[in-house]
Nucleic acid binder design. Structure first.
Lengths: 184, 184
DNA sequence: TCTACTGTACCGTCTGGACGGTATTGTCAA
DNA sequence: TTGACAATACCGTCCAGACGGTACAGTAGA
């Protein structure tokens, strides 16, 4: 049927992320993506009929990858503590230097509406976390702190030293791992 | 002498922020800014000789405003607890709906280097906080959580309910206001 | 041969910014 | 006082380049 069906698709998606990172989020042009993916512009537009579709696919793939990675970790964990799994996955993701999802900035520049799937995904995940986490205070603080870590990674604010970062993660996991609330 | 010295400058800066918010971060064109500011494109380029200079001024003004607001709050507070002042200012800033510094996305799309002044500002502020906060764990968690709150505001992820938000802020201020660490 | 896909040539639009012009105000010698 | 000149602040026009997207011809596998 389709000999290398979505092989091109994946190549293009990866190329788009690469271009966004290397050329800057504002310079994500279809020409650049096509050349980076090793195909022609015509071929690119055959797979993604418009730039908007490409961005959309970028967002959706990212969300799917994250969701399945979360399920993996959570299952490998005995489905015991979702918050803990979420924290560990997020921290891990933030440490992969080559990830740097700066293509998000391209998507926002193109049209902020591209964030909508991310918003609903986050909201659903947060609801799930609320249902599974006894201590709401601890959930709020840790969830926001993880969001902060993600933000600092995205913007490349390298404010924390390695030890500080480790101390932070330990604190968050401690907050997530017990029923203990915040002292005071 | 100079009847309305650089009144235009401020008008232009405000117009740029407005355009970025209303037309989307990727549609911040000089024409749009000029028309929004009520001057011509020639006049705009007289005040800011290039788009890059305009972006730079936007970043610098934002930083100056934040720094002076922080000093005000901290002083009004008896210069007692810098972290607490920082938290309250940040939360307040995140609640101003019209602020929505989405011009930052325009700056990033233009050139990620525009973030450099923000990076050094944040780093210096964090160093100051470290020097003044006895409990490093509490500092790390609260600082990151505030960063997360800022991020969610910027991206307009309205994940938290009002009560949850209030509970979060209370928890953070409690962590910042005492020498208590994290339970466990 | 047909179909799924690729490559190329091209078009219309938008944008930054260079440039020349102009009105107003300030400066200063005579 | 006045007239020559200069600086400031701004306007309107024009243009080269980049970009998204289309049209269409080509090609290789089934």
């Amino acid at each position: 049927m389709k000999p290398r069906k979505s092989n091109s698709r994946d190549k293009i998606l990866a190329a788009a992320a690469d271009v966004a990172r290397e050329a800057g989020p504002g310079n994500l042009s279809l020409d650049a993506v096509a050349s980076r993916a090793g195909i022609s512009k015509g071929g690119l537009l055959y797979n993604f009929p418009s730039k908007a579709k490409l961005m959309q696919a970028l967002v959706e793939q990212h969300l799917q990858d994250f969701a399945s990675a979360l399920e993996d970790i959570h299952s490998a964990d005995g489905r015991k503590n979702l918050l803990s799994a979420y924290i560990r996955l997020s921290v891990e993701e933030c440490q992969e230097t080559e990830a740097s999802a700066s293509w998000i900035f391209s998507a926002i520049a193109e049209d902020p509406e591209f964030l909508t799937p991310i918003k609903t995904f986050k909201r659903q995940l947060f609801e799930r976390l609320k249902a599974k986490t006894p201590d709401l205070k601890a959930l709020l603080v840790t969830y926001l702190a993880i969001e902060g870590l993600r933000s600092m990674t995205l913007f490349e604010f390298h404010t924390l030293e390695d030890e500080e970062r480790q101390l932070l993660v330990d604190s968050l996991l401690a907050l997530a791992g017990t029923d203990a609330g915040i002292a005071g």
